Amino acid sequence: GGTTSGLGELPSGWEQRFTPEGRAYFVDHNTRTTTWVDPRRQQ
């Protein structure tokens, strides 16, 4: 941990993952979708 950059926890059902290249993306298990956009930035 320690790399949350002050955004806090992800919404319920979300998970942060990384591509083999090390790029972060976000998985929404509620809708079984993925996005490059941090859901915390859409609030």
Score class of each variant (00 low, 15 high):
27 V>C: 09
41 R>W: 10
5 S>G: 09
2 G>S: 14
36 W>Q: 06
12 S>E: 11
36 W>I: 06
15 E>C: 04
21 E>F: 05
18 F>L: 10
4 T>G: 11
37 V>E: 08
9 E>A: 13
1 G>W: 05
41 R>Y: 11
13 G>T: 04
11 P>I: 01
29 H>Y: 08
23 R>Q: 15
38 D>G: 03
25 Y>M: 05
3 T>L: 11
28 D>Y: 01
13 G>H: 08
23 R>M: 15
21 E>P: 04
24 A>E: 11
43 Q>R: 15
9 E>R: 05
4 T>R: 10
2 G>C: 12
23 R>C: 14
22 G>D: 06
10 L>G: 01
34 T>A: 06
20 P>V: 11
27 V>K: 03
3 T>W: 07
6 G>I: 14
6 G>Q: 15
15 E>G: 04
26 F>T: 01
29 H>Q: 07
22 G>E: 05
15 E>A: 05
6 G>T: 14
16 Q>K: 13
9 E>C: 09
32 R>K: 13
34 T>V: 06
30 N>W: 04
27 V>F: 13
25 Y>Q: 02
22 G>A: 05
1 G>M: 14
4 T>A: 10
4 T>D: 15
33 T>P: 00
26 F>M: 02
15 E>N: 03
27 V>G: 00
23 R>L: 14
27 V>S: 03
30 N>S: 09
35 T>V: 01
14 W>C: 04
32 R>A: 07
2 G>W: 08
18 F>E: 14
39 P>M: 00
11 P>G: 02
37 V>Q: 07
10 L>D: 04
38 D>Y: 03
2 G>D: 13
12 S>Y: 05
28 D>P: 00
13 G>R: 05
16 Q>W: 04
36 W>R: 06
6 G>S: 14
41 R>D: 15
15 E>I: 03
24 A>I: 14
28 D>C: 06
39 P>F: 00
6 G>H: 11
2 G>H: 11
9 E>F: 08
7 L>S: 10
27 V>A: 06
15 E>D: 11
16 Q>D: 03
30 N>F: 05
39 P>H: 00
32 R>F: 10
33 T>S: 13
